[in-house]
Design a protein around this nucleic acid. Sequence first.
DNA 1: CACGTCACTGTTTTT
DNA 2: CAGTGACGTG
Length: 859
Amino acid sequence: MDYSSRREFSHFFGIIREKHNKVHAREFCLRSLPKLAYICSPMDEMKDKLKAVLDGLNEEQKKAVCAVDGPVLIVAGAGSGKTRVLTSRVAYMLAMGTDPSRILALTFTKKAAGEMKERIALMVGARSARRVVMGTFHSVFVRFLREYAGFLGYPEQFTIYDASDQASAMKACIKELQLDDKIYKPREVLSRISLAKNNLMTVSAYRNNPQIAMEDSHSRKPRIGELYELYQRKLKQSGVMDFDDILLNMNILLRDNPDALRDISGRFDYIMVDEYQDTNHAQYIIIRKLAVHRNICVVGDDSQSIYAFRGAKIENILNFKKDYKDCKTYRLERNYRSTATIVDAANSLIAHNAGRIPKDCYATGDKGDPIKILHAYTEGEEAVQIVSEITRLMRMESAQYEDFAILYRTNSQSRALEEQLRRRNIPYMIYSGNSFFERAEVKDMMAYFKLVVNVNDDEAFRRIVNKPARGIGDTTLAALATAAQVRGTSFFKAIFLDGLESFGLKNSAVTKLKAFAQMIDKLAMMCPTTDAFVLAQRIADDSGLYAFFKADNSIEGQSRTSNVEELINSVQGFIEERMEEAADYAEENGQEPEKLLFTLDDYLENVSLLSNVDVADDEDTNNKVALMTVHSAKGLEYPYVFVSGLEEDLFPSGGFMAGPQDIEEERRLFYVALTRAKRNVFLSYADSRMRNGKHNENTPSRFIREIDSKYIENPLDDSAFRSSGGSRAVWGGFPSVHRGSGTGYGESSEVRFIRRPQQPSGLPERPRTQYTSRPMSNGTQPQRPAMPAKPEIIDPDFVAVPMTELFVGERIEHNRFGGGLILDITGTAPEMKARIKFDDYGEKLLLLKYAKLRPEKKS
DNA sequence: CACGTCACTGTTTTT
DNA sequence: CAGTGACGTG
């Protein structure tokens, strides 16, 4: 049976509904019992409610819940009951009489928002819970942007480009500027633009920034600025935003439209932000602007910051105290999730990172079992071992399938695991790149939806204009594209322009285009007044797409047909869900249920902003092994967690790691992986792994070694890290000393120790390559160094080793923690640690190879 | 214009 | 090993 594919989506909406009903039943009991029990004054009732909210929380949690006014920073370690605190906090505010609609709570995934809503509903009732403005950054902001779309020059029903739409649009831009797509790779250009947008760099800012110009010309892509401009123009012309535009345009709106700022910020008295360590600059500024009342509460854990690659700034949480001087800080350090072994092991790992918020996470649970390591020869065998372990645990500890999660660094690793799970008939569920929505036929259907909602969506147009075949081929489309480009309009509108012959379009081609456009136009006219499900069916029929798939009787054809059917059913599911919500709401308010219409716009908005974990909330999720990337696993927990592929160059991800900040992020990622587990952790690695059709030999990840070996059942000895199989290509010709740069800790500590340069004491270390924000006068590349040519200069450990002899009792200075006194020094070479009592941050144990210490300046 | 074949190239992670 | 793009044939 195929567990992986299309049924993922099938019962999604049905389950949501079921959950709502459950909520209602339980909530009914919870809410009516106290009311029946005593009739008392409103004051007493309030006190009682507040007491109920705080019941069962620990002291620190209670404090964090009650501190509703003013800026609050909650540093919440993994498994410390963060969601509980957040939900209780909302419940507390509501019990105090706050109007729920004046609370804004922002999360990163819909799932997180949904869970919070559900839990709040249990505490205070669905009616209030529903009115809290709670959702992802993107979905909440999209709603604001629709209201003010006109101001920004967008149509109210703007659509949203997904990653492949973006790539395709960028390709068109590159072509239009006649650039070489070997040099200007669409994805690369896009990620550069994405970073710019997340740092609130508009097109003009980008093009006028000399440092950017330097960087781009240095990477031999001087025309990225132009591409950025063209890309933005195209998107606007199409009435389309990409993910980053949602944040950027929100900022532009709040910056340029004082009324909008006043209006939107005036809607809320309290703002809460979850996973604050993962906010990027654009989000940070929006939050700042909206929180005029300063009742802002951010929750996060700097040790779990894993989204730097998409612009997240760990500084946001580190600097919160500076931004809001009077902020109150609460630390949730008590771990309720995992065994002591897991908590301590994770702590021992993360201790290798410098620059953290001081935090002392401790376990409350049992000691638990040590961490097990699975050593395999290939990824296939790795999968076999994992699966055997799962079946063993199910036998021995009567575990259920749903108790297991298999985590990995990259999505492609799921293949081998899947194969093995299928072979052993183990039900599983992959939570990754929306497999359902990524199917060609589903995307086609979605493209029709998008085009009907927004006829100017050129990428949607391009995708389906000739699907099914209408005799509109590449030549015709290219000519139309030129016409649209020259006249500065969308493909759709260009069809109705005069003088198309001059672009090489024959009359017959124009006739075909017009027929297509009229078909779309007719559907588009229906859009605002037609039920989404009805319209979706009309689209499937009128477009001929459904008939086209239906006509194909092959296995694939049948699968395509049923996927399209499923998509259309999901539209119906969506409507029913919303209808029920609306009906409940009306009922609770004692009103007539409003007759509400849900259009295709609503559906599209909902679906385009779904994340990996959102989609997978399905009947089928029940009792299945979960497979996902570590990134997707954030916020989730499982009794048994397998972290697979723990190999150098995979986890930590290899290749382009330029500095310690990259390896630290990888380490945090591994920290996230470990802390997902409640009972048991298994770490697996394979000596050989197939990557892009090639066999790669690997050494075990340094992270395995960084966990204190006392928490590991069968720790690896040093020889395991040296090499595997002996056939590895390492820095040829260099003695083992240099291997460290490529392979982690490939050599014995003595060797490293000897190689460590002894700097004349007192001389501060030459600063490491700094990523300055100003162009350098000598014309050297101010960006990250490219792939290092010589091993000598890139060994991060080598460079980071402290340059002076450290003595107990000496005073030193640390970049982040400031001045401190060395209390003692323990361990040998690479693992040498110093216990330091910092003046402002208290006692900390730092790994010398990462801590950048210098002798304190004499004043 | 549709469909097949061949060569090439890419290596994270995601709202 | 894919997924994509270029090119040729019916």
